[in-house]
Write a protein that binds this DNA or RNA. Structure first.
Lengths: 315, 315
DNA sequence: CTGAAAGCGCTTACAG
DNA sequence: CTGAAAGCGCTTACAG
């Protein structure tokens, strides 16, 4: 924008400095056969001198380029998102796609930089589609349906019922479900558990996801929860730690269930029981939907992937 | 490549179908003022009908575009890399850069898709710089110096000494350092610990990073290690779990130190002592080096970021 | 409100 | 071994 900013060197600048034509520059830069070694050196020297950076756009316009996928993920600090991102990177790599990643806060112009967007953030995503009305957008486990967006839905009912049966069979009577308590009430994961408990004839308490054990236990000893359904595995680890600090035994005194199925759940003691989902299947479904939506518009593009209850040591 | 594959629609196709000129298509697509509402609708309908996807390259060539950074990270399943990636995404977003991510195995043509590459993989990275001789490459904590690459080095000596003093002051006499035992011997992190122990007059055992507690303890009870330096925090969690399973108390019977400073270390019991590093500082240094290397070539581009020992409950 | 022209930076045939 | 020409798909002034 600065009028005095020097224009970046282009291939013609290099050609001029090296005293050759531009296609000779191309030849030198790409190590193509049929070029005099001395000429090549001269060109490369000129490129270095001018600090020449070829334009991706100029090249992309003329060479068949791979597709670029935009991947919008929630906090990568949570290994859950890391596992999905890792899988998407692998699958996209196999197809020769590049992946532009962004976290929701980021301002990056995804629509302008990509050929399709996959979003997995825990909330609805809104992609500013400047000039790209047909940009395929796929949401993973979105809280709401968005017409025109493809989506990968998570099926939680069966796994939640399995977890609840497991808990009740072990004598649980005073479960608490930790959840994100927004203006709309429980999250879908929370609702699935609450409904599963109710269907089994037990009314669970519901508390904020970040509640401390002291909050949950109340003041009368012995009346606290005998099971905690954490909002996710990370919070489950926290609950496990707090229970240990409080001198309570898991699973004998309190049983704990997480959600996400982090591999890390195997690395803590007691190993955390959890609701898991096959993220490879999720990623594959999302990429398939991208391909489907890239073609001529069809109807609803939806895939459903089920959760599964994994009983480990904490229940 | 398939001769029968239909050529993707371009802006001229849309213009033809809508019966307008191409700049009218541009106007309609970008919601620009000064266009008849009916015309706009007609254009958008044609775009939909043809499943028109604007070319990023055509546009990029003519509009000033943000830079695109390539970020090569080791396994995103490890929250350590996730934390770095998250920070880079945030800092890059603030500067208006897009970020193309890839894991080392991926075949993606980073050089062709980006304006600079940052690598943080635990091993040396080799970027195929097809036609991009001046592509800035910055390596984070690389095992070897690479001439021409910028690098962010981790300083471990002081933090390792601090950790060792801490352990020895608590009576540790038979420490074991778990490490990646490659053909070149210890890793740098392992060496830093081994040297710190030696300087303090204690010769540590060295074992493979994945060793089980049974491997380490040997057959004579009481002769096993009284401290374990894990390869990273994730392995530290595993050691913690194994010790618990073996009925040993941490830190009373065995003290455990991790490396990485995962936030997660606070979420386990006992909370894991570790060597931590400020990943925001690391990311910022890497991006600064990218900028520095994007300009006219200067000398060595190196930044050093120190580790710090954090004593939590496991020591 | 709409269109004809120029040009962004590169590579790919095609000549010499 | 090297160069002149065409063209990729788009946007930006400039005319009408």
């Amino acid at each position: 924008m600065n009028a005095s900013a020097p224009r970046a060197a282009t291939i013609v600048d290099v050609a001029r400095v090296a005293g050759v034509s531009r296609q000779t520059v191309t030849r030198a830069l790409h190590d193509m056969p049929g070029i005099n070694a001395g000429t090549r050196e001269r060109v490369l020297a000129a490129a270095r001198e001018l600090n020449y950076h070829p334009s991706r756009f100029g090249r992309g316009l003329v060479k068949p380029a791979g597709r670029t996928l935009g991947l919008l993920v929630g906090d990568l600090t949570n290994p859950y998102y890391g596992e999905l991102a890792s899988t998407v990177l692998r699958l996209a790599g196999e197809r020769g796609w590049n992946v532009v990643m962004a976290e929701p806060g980021s301002l990056s112009d995804l629509a302008g930089a990509t050929d399709a967007v996959v979003g997995f953030t825990g909330s609805s995503i809104e992609v500013p589609r400047a000039g790209a009305p047909n940009l395929p957008v796929v949401e993973i486990d979105p809280p709401h349906d968005h017409p025109g967006h493809g989506r990968v839905e998570f099926e939680r009912a069966q796994a939640s019922r399995d977890a609840v049966s497991h808990l009740l069979a072990r004598g649980v009577r005073r479960p608490v479900v930790l959840d994100l308590l927004g203006p709309e009430g429980c999250s879908r994961r929370g609702r699935a558990f609450v409904e599963a408990f109710r269907d089994a004839g037990v009314e669970p308490a519901v508390a904020d996801r970040a509640s401390s054990w002291a909050d949950l236990a109340g003041d009368r000893p012995g009346a606290g929860p005998d099971a905690v359904v954490a909002f996710n595995d990370l919070e489950g680890f926290r609950v496990l730690r707090d229970l240990r600090t409080a001198g309570l035994r898991v699973p004998q005194d309190v049983r704990v269930v997480g959600v996400d199925g982090l591999a890390l759940g195997e690395f803590v003691a007691p190993r955390l029981s959890t609701l898991t989902i096959d993220l490879t299947e999720v990623a594959r479904a999302a990429l398939d939907l991208v391909v489907e939506l890239s073609g001529p518009r069809s109807g609803e593009a939806v895939r459903v992937v089920p959760h599964r209850f994994v009983a480990r040591d904490s229940t």
